[in-house]
Design a protein around this nucleic acid. Structure first.
Lengths: 331, 331
DNA sequence: CTGTTAGCGCATTCAC
DNA sequence: GTGAATGCGCTAACAG
């Protein structure tokens, strides 16, 4: 009886049943072409099948020094507002034989607690969407040199991929200017975020360049609800010619409050521009002109760092994925 | 120099620096109260701090036999249409000291390939949203006896949590009947899913019980687009009095096509009922009456199986979370 | 080509 | 209280 005692068969059990050494069994089971005689390989595979053997990836990792695990770090799941992007990312990561461990850091207040506990697997790589920490902290936390910063908080030692927002913002503002817009309102997200600060600055510069006067700024938090609230302040009888939002969700909130100003979804009192190009903006009810980027290209850039870590050289500039203006009815 | 050679310090390095044995270091670093003299514990902690020591969870798991990893299995990320639920689930799982490894199985066609490769970590538990496999297969795949089936494909050996859909469906149909609805249309999802089959059957029974005639059935795939397509078939001059959809997204598609039939979002030619109670139905543009359940309660039930696996006895009935009708304008 | 051996990093006996 | 020794499951390096 080659059955293991405690239930889950190890490679040792397989080897015993096949009548070979553990090393041979290991080679036969390996995906790479290791030298094993045909008949022994056959016997091993059969034994493994019979026993229902599944390699213990943890033990495997202990010796190979590669865990095939990548951490994806977010503040909240809602950061993944773009599920299309995330789905693609997950599929591609799995396609190169790695698994994703999803880490939710929570609110910024709890970050310190998170860092102190520091219970984190030593992963091959970490993809950081969350703005909770800088690159150095993340590298320490995960014991990984390969930390791809997607939050704008990169440094010389870690690669980064960031949307080049200036392009799309300029296109959107140019679109507005070409339609005679002279005054604008801006609805922003949290001021604390580096990405957001840069985004706002791009809008300001684009306005200045096109001779558009920024007459009002309201701070929201990217959410639909905050768009709802902002509507009261930023629109009304003295609406600016156009309202730009740094998230589609806020634009949706504003649209819902001011739908009367958009008969047949076309702007009457002011034009409305969002940001993110959410798939929701393809729904009839929210035909919001937006700014987006090629998600497939973005994902491939991230993936390249995972597949070819050596391709990154310290000090290398962040990879920039161009954004573009996506016209829709509200513009 | 107590510094390790290759960079990442092990508990051995900590022990050496503190001038104690590895065993003592292990105890001092343990969260449980193990016998260590005060001064040595102090020295160990200081040494660990100084070296920036992070325990290797993989190696730890190898001996403790508990990896603190739970797999969440989905077909596509879009299965997580309810991000509120997922966010809560993730937070609670992490709060009990476990991490989530998110596994995307992909389309049903690719399932077999996935099973053959069988590259899966041996996890403490797996939560299966995907309908790709039955409980037995999942147990084998993850080498875990604790597989919580959330897809309706449970068996005697695995615990399950499932929404009790009959309750909410009956309430919704009762609501329609009370408003004089005599004929109904039904827009369904994929016929292959067990959950969907049961759902449809509940609608049929509720219709029969209330004397409502089911005059039309259209099959979609839960998506907004399929709702769009279904609209042509199920509505028109001979609309049924009410259209029930087995997902909110499909109801949204129908609403957008037939918005003229809902002046001020109130039904004129037919009433519209969705399913899932997506947070989107709280947006002004999609005030769709729906059927939902208490997400917090659902998550706590799932969590209980993770925390107290022993509480489950083979043959135990699935835990049922009651659903309820959520009235909104379209009804 | 094959089998033996020696770790990977850690927790855990079991003597002291 | 403490530390030396053992083993978790696996693969890499070595010697046949």
């Amino acid at each position: 009886m080659a059955e293991p005692k405690n239930g889950t068969p190890t490679i040792g059990d397989v080897a015993k049943l096949a009548g070979v050494s553990r090393a041979v069994a290991s080679r036969a089971l390996s995906s790479e072409k290791r030298p094993v005689s045909a008949d022994k390989r056959e016997r091993v595979l059969e034994a493994a099948e019979q026993l229902g053997f599944r390699p213990n990836l943890l033990a495997q990792s202990l010796t190979t020094k590669t865990v095939n695990l990548v951490a994806v770090v977010v503040n909240h799941i809602h950061d993944l507002s773009d599920l299309d992007l995330f789905d693609l990312l997950l599929e591609r990561i799995q396609s190169i034989g790695k698994q994703v461990i999803l880490i939710r850091v929570g609110s910024v207040e709890r970050v310190e607690e998170f860092l102190r506990q520091g219970v984190a697997y030593h992963v091959d790589a970490a993809l950081v969407f969350s703005d909770f920490a800088d690159a150095a902290t993340v590298r320490r936390l995960f014991r990984s040199d390969l930390v791809v910063m997607l939050n704008g908080r990169h440094d010389e030692l870690s690669p980064a991929v960031i949307p080049d927002e200036a392009v799309g913002i300029n296109q959107a503002v140019a679109d507005a200017a070409s339609k005679g817009v002279r005054t604008a309102g801006l609805v922003t997200g949290r001021a604390s975020s580096l990405v957001e600060a840069a985004r706002v600055e791009h809008y300001r510069q684009a306005f200045a360049a096109r001779g558009i006067e920024l007459v009002r700024v309201v701070q929201g938090d990217y959410s639909y609800e905050s768009g709802h609230e902002a509507a009261a302040t930023i629109t009304g009888w003295d609406s600016p010619d156009a309202v730009f939002c740094t998230s589609d969700a806020m634009a949706m909130g504003i649209l819902d409050v001011c739908r009367a100003d958009f008969p047949h979804n076309r702007p009457q009192k002011f034009r409305l521009y969002g940001f993110d190009n959410l798939s929701l903006t393809d729904f009839d009810a929210y035909p919001i002109a937006s700014i987006g980027y090629d998600k497939a290209a973005y994902v491939e850039h991230v993936l390249r760092f995972l597949v070819e870590p050596a391709a990154f050289e310290p000090g290398q500039e962040p990879v920039r994925v161009p954004t573009r203006f996506v016209p829709r009815l509200t513009a």
